[in-house]
């Protein structure tokens, strides 16, 4: 990841960072979501042999952000850890995470997520925006949430993305372990279709605006981007060989995404 991250402008002075974070300069606050520290220990607990990686990857992801030096508080919008069950190794990772932030003069504040058990605040308000995890409904007029793990996955390319609108920001998972929900699909959750959300996908060092989320699928299909999901209503039960082969090839490309 490059140190030279360019930030994109979001609503009300929020800046969108390619690392999958948002920053409010005046409030000197950065927000990330769904870090899922201890993912490997949780997997290990149920019997998988996995190399340790979450803490290292999390710190590497934050390195570029902290070097911008524009925030003193890091809010985690829920799911800092993978599992609320007591785990010495996860606790070690959380402590090391806090220590790492501390040594850079940054204070950690946790919002309660569905993986956090009881550790964390229900909601935090920053510059008129309420930060919650998003697993339960919240009535605030301006919300920042995590939980949904939006990704843009088309033509074999996969990128985390921030969904941002005038009254709602949905953060991607900071961890790479989450499977993610594809914003390029035809059917999207209701709260993604409302709130005039735009999709900002991250490359290594900048944000690309893919436009409104509610029309993204249609526009991708309209631009006939190879591997974009097909237009609904099309049946594969078609006749002659040639058209069937074309259909299958499209399907194949779709399935080749990670």
């Amino acid at each position: 990841m490059s140190d030279q991250q360019s930030l994109a402008p979001g609503p009300d002075g929020w800046l969108l960072a390619p690392a999958g974070a948002i920053i409010h300069r005046e409030a000197r606050v950065a927000v990330i979501a769904d870090v899922h520290l201890g993912y490997e220990w949780s997997r290990g607990h149920s019997g998988d042999i996995v190399p340790a990686h979450s803490l290292r990857e999390t710190l590497a992801g934050l390195e570029g952000l902290t070097s911008l030096g524009c925030f003193h508080q890091l809010m985690v919008a829920g799911d800092l850890v993978e599992s609320p069950l007591p785990c010495r190794k996860t606790e070690h990772d959380v402590a090391a995470f806090e220590q790492w932030l501390d040594s850079r003069g940054i204070r950690l504040r946790r919002v309660l997520g569905n993986h956090d058990g009881t550790r964390g605040e229900k909601a935090i308000v920053v510059a008129g925006w309420t930060i919650v995890h998003g697993h339960v409904k919240h009535r605030a007029s301006k919300l920042i949430t995590g939980h949904d793990h939006p990704v843009l996955s088309i033509a074999g390319v996969r990128s985390r993305c921030i969904l941002a609108g005038p009254s709602r920001i949905i953060l991607p998972a900071f961890t790479s372990n989450a499977a993610g929900r594809n914003v390029a699909e035809a059917t999207l959750p209701k709260h993604w279709r409302n709130h005039d959300l735009e999709c900002w996908a991250a490359t290594g060092n900048r944000m690309l605006n893919f436009g409104r989320v509610d029309s993204l699928h249609e526009r991708l299909a309209g631009a006939a981007i190879a591997g974009a999901p097909a237009v609904p209503g099309r049946s594969s039960n078609s006749g002659p060989t040639r058209s069937r082969i074309v259909l299958r090839r499209q399907g194949a490309r779709k399935s080749s995404q990670p």
């Binding site: 033509a155 074999g156 390319v157 490359t203 690309l208 631009a223 194949a252 490309r253 080749s256």
Partner: peptide, 24 residues
């Protein structure tokens, strides 16, 4: 009739930028 598999020579970033350029 066989399924196609992509063989990658382009970085994910530049592929994403290319897709973006096409879309917008």
């Amino acid at each position: 009739a066989s399924e196609a598999e992509p063989i990658r020579f382009e970085s994910a970033d530049s592929a994403l930028e290319r897709l973006h350029a096409r879309l917008v």
